[in-house]
Amino acid sequence: MSLKKKKKSFFKYWSAKLHLWFGLAVGIPVVIISITGALYVFKDEVENFTRQDVIYHHEPNIGSKKLIPISVLAERVAKACPEDYPLHWVDVPTDVTRSYKYYYYEHNPDAWNYFDETVIYKTIYVNPFSGEVLRVYDEKMGFFNIVKMIHFSFLLKSEWGKYVVGIPVCLFVIMLITGVVLWWPRNKAGRKQRFQFAWKSTTKPKRKNYDLHNILGFYSSIFALIFAITGLFYCFFIVQAMVYVVFSGGETVYPDRSHITTTAPESERTLYTLDSIANQVKRLYPDSYQFSLDLGDEHMDDHVHPNFEVYVKHLSYSYHKASHIVFDEHSGELLHIHDHNDKNLGEKMVSANYDIHVGSVFNLPTKIIAFLVSLICASLPITGFMIWYGRRKKLLKD
């Protein structure tokens, strides 16, 4: 029995050391990452409210009107909102009452910070029946995009800034695990105290702070681990590979559709090729939310696709349910359909990673969980520091 106790205390001793050292080392980055994560959770809800007057174009009598061809609309957008760069892609909604969204996006791979790396990022809402540009949003300087890039790379170059964020998150994962080890009570009496707040009017602030750190930390730990690991998915390829291998049942090769390519000559491409592709997508997935079409221009980051793949988003609030369709970009011929239901579990988990990370996988309920857990994660380094500082102050007095 004494040997068992010794081993347990040894394990807890080093858990406490790691928990403290890592907490002091990455406390500030974890607070920043957590707060920006909480702020980003309700991005769609806020934007849907503030942009509601342009999300729908309000064109009268659309039943008797025709949609302007996608390529013609692109030319009108470029003329109405001229930039030094070509338009990148367009989001086409299946609901004809909604506006099309055209995007300017240029990425400079040689820059060292977000503001230089993202050369331009603008969203243009367009009435597809009249061609009227309803509004232009500069997403590069938009609140939520700045928040997102602080969260993702601390506004550093994405290629290596993600590691500046990823390393503290790795240490935070260890802190969460060691925190649960330290929280784990030795007996039933200890369990009662650690599962709930038992504050009285005489409870001191130090005790309240200790309980906030321990009890909130325990209850949020499983969700915090999920959000942390799904965040590391974007930082380290090994995490992506592990997610796919584990959930696909041991498959190590991700499905590759790059061999399905355009074979028709460029002369077959017309102003109506993209519309032909759009109409086929609408027939295949009439109940989908929207799909995205690349406009086929060259871009600063050597934007080259092995094939012309259309991304179909099935749900308004989530990206995890998505299908991919490959077309001949010159003739508009349908070459391949990779339906959401045909994906293995590994592919579905990879697709769902973003939605799990931001809490949108089950819409509002999981968003609320993500928001609250992010705030708790932001509080843990602060309450933890106060516990350490209080003990240190007491030791110095003694």
Rank of each mutant, 00 (worst) to 15 (best):
residue 138 D to R: 05
residue 172 F to S: 10
residue 241 A to G: 03
residue 253 V to I: 08
residue 224 A to T: 02
residue 104 Y to S: 05
residue 143 F to W: 12
residue 380 L to D: 02
residue 73 L to D: 10
residue 114 Y to N: 04
residue 269 R to F: 10
residue 293 L to P: 06
residue 242 M to Q: 06
residue 135 R to L: 09
residue 36 T to C: 12
residue 354 Y to D: 13
residue 37 G to V: 00
residue 298 E to W: 08
residue 130 S to Q: 08
residue 363 N to Y: 08
residue 113 N to P: 02
residue 310 V to T: 07
residue 387 I to W: 04
residue 131 G to A: 02
residue 66 K to Y: 07
residue 300 M to E: 03
residue 239 V to D: 02
residue 343 K to G: 06
residue 340 H to V: 14
residue 57 H to W: 06
residue 337 I to A: 01
residue 216 L to Q: 04
residue 339 D to L: 05
residue 323 S to Y: 09
residue 385 F to W: 15
residue 13 Y to N: 09
residue 370 A to C: 14
residue 207 R to M: 14
residue 151 H to V: 12
residue 242 M to I: 05
residue 85 Y to Q: 05
residue 248 S to L: 10
residue 92 V to N: 07
residue 257 R to S: 01
residue 107 H to P: 00
residue 90 V to N: 01
residue 44 D to E: 09
residue 248 S to M: 06
residue 264 A to G: 09
residue 322 A to C: 15
residue 99 S to D: 10
residue 270 T to K: 08
residue 327 F to K: 04
residue 67 L to R: 11
residue 327 F to W: 08
residue 104 Y to A: 01
residue 119 V to G: 10
residue 299 H to W: 10
residue 25 A to M: 15
residue 128 P to L: 12
residue 36 T to M: 00
residue 392 R to P: 02
residue 307 N to F: 11
residue 220 S to Y: 12
residue 237 F to V: 00
residue 172 F to E: 01
residue 187 N to F: 06
residue 44 D to T: 04
residue 54 V to P: 11
residue 122 K to H: 15
residue 34 S to D: 09
residue 323 S to W: 12
residue 53 D to K: 14
residue 249 G to T: 13
residue 26 V to D: 07
residue 287 D to L: 13
residue 347 E to S: 09
residue 351 S to E: 05
residue 274 L to M: 14
residue 30 V to E: 04
residue 381 P to H: 08
residue 371 F to K: 04
residue 226 I to L: 15
residue 118 T to V: 08
residue 224 A to Q: 04
residue 72 V to Q: 15
residue 68 I to G: 07
residue 261 T to A: 13
residue 176 L to P: 12
residue 69 P to R: 13
residue 99 S to N: 11
residue 288 S to R: 15
residue 109 P to Q: 07
residue 373 V to M: 08
residue 352 A to Q: 07
residue 82 P to G: 00
residue 220 S to I: 12
residue 55 I to A: 03
residue 64 S to G: 03
residue 343 K to V: 01
residue 108 N to E: 13
residue 59 E to H: 09
residue 57 H to I: 06
residue 338 H to L: 09
residue 387 I to N: 03
residue 267 S to F: 02
residue 104 Y to C: 04
residue 254 Y to T: 05
residue 193 Q to L: 03
residue 332 G to E: 08
residue 187 N to M: 10
residue 324 H to C: 00
residue 222 I to V: 08
residue 208 K to T: 07
residue 131 G to W: 13
residue 336 H to K: 09
residue 11 F to H: 04
residue 262 T to E: 00
residue 7 K to P: 01
residue 239 V to N: 06
residue 16 A to S: 09
residue 171 L to E: 08
residue 379 S to D: 03
residue 151 H to A: 02
residue 140 K to A: 02
residue 78 A to P: 10
residue 165 V to S: 02
residue 137 Y to G: 03
residue 94 T to H: 09
residue 106 E to D: 14
residue 319 Y to P: 02
residue 164 V to E: 01
residue 19 H to K: 04
residue 364 L to W: 11
residue 335 L to S: 13
residue 104 Y to G: 03
residue 67 L to T: 12
residue 247 F to A: 07
residue 353 N to C: 06
residue 343 K to T: 02
residue 92 V to L: 01
residue 296 G to R: 11
